[in-house]
């Protein structure tokens, strides 16, 4: 469903993402794991067509993100790190607006909106202003906007960051409910999230992929924590070695 091949992003002379390749299969949840500043957000932005890659290719649902950006964007639901909410809108009008933007036909607008509201448990707050919602509800609205147009691919950037434990549990529940029908990529730096939600794990450090495997394979012999630490340490050591040569 998602095939990334040697994807690179440079900002001037700083390399944010260096030649990464991975794949995500249809209906699976891929966890994108890495420390802060590892290049998770940049990768996701490239996948969603927000940023153009410097080189390399990424295909989403068979379409190239650089050359067939519009097709890709039609098929992707994206929840950035900060949910992109217009504080002055009500939940209902906001979701209608997003549905229109995403190209939902006029006749299905109301249905798509109501489905998203129901699914994310927003019925009680549907008439409220986004500005007046709690953090957890805002995150739910963010999720709702990502799937209001029934995309094949969901890209979620740190979907549980800054939430209280109860909200985290709720959001995770919602995400788990989504898996199976669509491909989900979620980035996080919280390890338990990966073990709870993901089928596949990609560990990224300083712009490079240091580990890519199914979760079962990784956690067969060691805990995820160990795998993660080992990968990061190995990578850091390798870099230092490179630098000294």
């Amino acid at each position: 469903m998602i095939e990334v091949h040697e994807l690179t992003k440079r900002y001037g002379d700083r390399v944010a993402v260096e030649s990464i390749s991975f794949t995500a299969e249809k209906g699976r949840v891929l966890g994108f794991l890495g420390p802060n500043g590892a290049g998770k957000t940049t990768t996701m932005r490239m996948l969603t067509g927000f940023l153009p890659p410097s080189s390399g290719t990424a295909r989403v649902a068979g379409y190239d993100v650089a050359t067939q950006s519009d097709e890709v964007r039609r098929r992707i639901g994206y929840l950035p790190e900060n949910p992109p909410l217009y504080p002055e809108m009500t939940v209902r009008s906001y979701l209608t607006f997003v549905a229109r933007l995403k190209g939902v036909p006029r006749a299905h607008l109301a249905a798509a909106r109501d489905r998203a509201i129901e699914r994310m448990g927003l019925t009680d707050v549907a008439g409220r202003l986004l500005a007046h919602l709690s953090k957890g509800y805002k995150q739910r609205v963010g999720l709702a906007q990502a799937l209001v147009h029934e995309p094949e691919v969901l890209v979620l950037d740190e979907p549980t960051i800054g939430l209280d434990p109860r909200q985290i549990i709720e959001i995770r529940g919602l995400i788990r409910g989504l898996a199976g029908e669509r491909t989900v990529i979620l980035s996080t730096h919280i390890l338990p999230e990966v073990s709870q939600l993901c089928d596949k794990v990609v560990i990224i450090n300083e712009g490079r992929i240091v580990c890519e495997d199914l979760r079962e394979n990784l956690t067969r012999n060691a805990s995820l924590e160990e795998v993660f630490l080992r990968s990061i340490t190995r990578d850091t050591a390798a870099r230092e070695a490179e630098a000294t040569v």
Partner: peptide, 13 residues
Amino acid sequence: RTGTYELLLTSPV
């Protein structure tokens, strides 16, 4: 500032 820019630019618009 609020990030909705990302929503606009990742929509098929």
